[in-house]
Design a protein around this nucleic acid. Structure first.
Length: 478
RNA sequence: CGGGGCGUAGCGCAGCCCGGCUAGCGCGUCUGCUUUGGGAGCAGAAGGUCGGAGGUUCGAAUCCUCUCGCCCCGACCA
């Protein structure tokens, strides 16, 4: 017998872990809270990286690399920043067998050390803007971890920019928020809500934090990326100044923004089903798997099938395909294997198909017989390409429908408390921290964001009944 | 840091409460034969410091003490 993965409805956390390990995305490391990203998971991450990186470059950013170690005193320079990060720092106290004069922090994020470097590099308004990104690993001493979603060490990109005016910095912050939204929608097929964080949820040291929020398969929210308007907080702490056209010293306006390997977790939890992963075609490491079916001891059939496979492969062009010709595994075994791994499309081809000059095309996003169709061999490449686009679009559509079906608009606090346990709740909020505190204490939910897109007019706060300018999204979050 | 669970073969587990002979089962692995359109069958084989240390005992996977680690749920967080 074969161990099936546990259904999502039975134990979502267990399902998540099992899928990741069985699909060989990642494994637990021998250090608590750390993970090993295995080749299959890393291949997905590389595709995420590639898509983001090309968007960064298209908007004028350059990549660079800053040190892993940050002097402790740097972290302490920005008051809110210290407070936010101090509890989760990994600190190096010894090096080369000797106690260090000043402890070194393993970067939890790099605003401080990059801010320091910017203060050296920026002299004049002509040096601005500075638009730099780095792909790096960072460490945060998390109490409770979860593969991809919250590990002690994680991989990400962090963009850090410096500008002459607040307007430019704001523009940058929102440009990146849009870029992230575009990536999530069009590559990861994750419908996200771009919005602003509440005061209590914003990045330590930021003026304003923006986020893209997604709904996972268990209806909990996940922050999938952030973009921060840092105002002049870090510029003042690190003395990032320039001489403007009127010969006056000015502090820069800086931003920072990041997307991490958490995005992998978001993809898994947005699209995965009880058979395993379901990966969006645009970033799937393998988009198409071809499974030849060959009865043993019938060499003529084998040759014919493999020839047909070869000629199909030749027509596939850019499609990322894999031929699984492991004939010591039964067809059923191989089907299940690739379904677990979330490959979007599968071609099954055997002597019977060959006789009719057709193949079986099976969609991963529609499990079982319903997702299977015969298609003529003659124009299979075209069909595959079209089908990959269709799957990509359908996955976004399905995820959007799921989110909308589980998004409620309660009008009383009582109904709010009920529905917020069941999904997202959209409701007016007066932006008062006390109301936020109250619902946090009473419901397990938090304010995920104040969406950029707002209805006209105003309403009354769901908690206190005072006038509220904006709708906020509330949910239980990861 | 609180609550819960778990460490026994590569993986998943049983055995422990109530100590006893050679520590079991499933999957996987290896060998052979038969099989291949949804996780193949039969036959044989290999594989163990029972997380670690100490104690009780004629005898410990099992009881006691200490310890290390991991997972899950909360508080805190990308």
């Amino acid at each position: 017998m074969f161990d099936k993965i546990i259904p999502r409805s039975e134990d979502y956390a267990k399902w998540y872990t099992q899928v990741i390990r069985r699909a060989e995305m990642a494994d637990y490391a021998p250090v608590r809270g750390c993970m090993v990203v295995r080749p299959y998971g890393y291949a997905l991450w590389e595709n995420v990286k590639e898509q983001l990186d090309s968007r960064f470059k298209a908007t004028g950013h350059q990549n660079a690399a800053f040190p892993l170690f940050i002097p402790m005193s740097f972290i302490e320079k920005e008051a809110e920043h210290v407070e936010g990060f101090k509890p989760e720092l990994a600190v190096v106290t010894h090096g080369g067998g000797k106690k260090l004069e000043e402890p070194l922090v393993v970067r939890p994020t790099s605003e401080t050390i990059i801010g320091y470097m910017y203060s050296q590099w920026i002299q004049s308004y002509r040096d601005l803007p500075v638009l730099i990104n780095q792909w790096a690993n960072v460490v945060r001493w998390e109490l409770r971890t979860r593969l991809f979603i919250r590990t002690m060490e994680f991989f990400w990109q962090e963009g850090h920019t410096a500008h002459a005016t607040h307007a430019e910095a704001e523009e940058e912050t929102l440009r990146i928020l849009e870029l992230y939204t575009d990536f999530a929608l069009n590559e990861a097929a994750i419908p996200v809500i771009p919005g602003r964080k509440s005061e209590s949820e914003k990045f330590p040291g930021a003026l304003t934090s923006y986020t893209i929020e997604a709904m996972m398969g268990d209806k909990r929210a996940l922050q999938a990326g952030t973009s921060h308007d840092l105002g002049q907080n870090f510029a003042k702490a690190f003395d990032i100044q320039y001489l403007d056209a009127n010969q006056k010293q000015q502090h820069c306006w800086t931003t920072s923004w990041g997307v991490s390997t958490r995005m992998i977790g978001a993809i898994i939890m947005t699209h995965g089903d009880d058979q395993g992963l379901v990966l969006p075609p645009r970033i799937a490491p393998t988009q198409l798997v071809i499974v030849p079916i060959i009865p043993k001891n019938r060499d003529t059939d084998k040759q014919a099938v493999m020839q047909a496979v070869d000629s199909i492969c030749e027509t596939l062009g850019e499609v990322r395909y894999h031929v699984d010709d492991r004939h010591d595994y039964s067809p059923g075994w191989r089907f299940n294997e690739w379904e677990l791994k979330g490959v979007p499309l599968r071609i099954e081809i055997g002597p019977r198909d060959l006789a009719k000059q057709q193949v079986v095309l099976a969609r991963r996003d529609i499990p079982g017989r319903e997702g299977k169709a015969f298609t003529p061999i003659a124009n299979v490449a075209e069909t595959v390409k079209d089908m990959l686009d269709t799957i990509q679009a359908d996955m976004l559509k399905r995820a959007t429908e799921f989110r909308d079906m589980n998004t409620f608009e309660p009008t009383t606090y009582d109904s709010f408390k009920e529905v917020v346990e069941e999904g997202f709740a959209r409701a007016w909020w007066c932006e008062n921290a006390e109301c936020e505190e109250q619902l946090k204490a009473e419901t397990q939910a938090t304010i995920r964001c104040i969406p950029i897109e707002q209805p006209d007019g105003d309403g009354v706060c769901i908690v206190c009944g005072e006038t509220a300018q904006d709708i906020a999204v509330f949910a239980r979050a990861y």
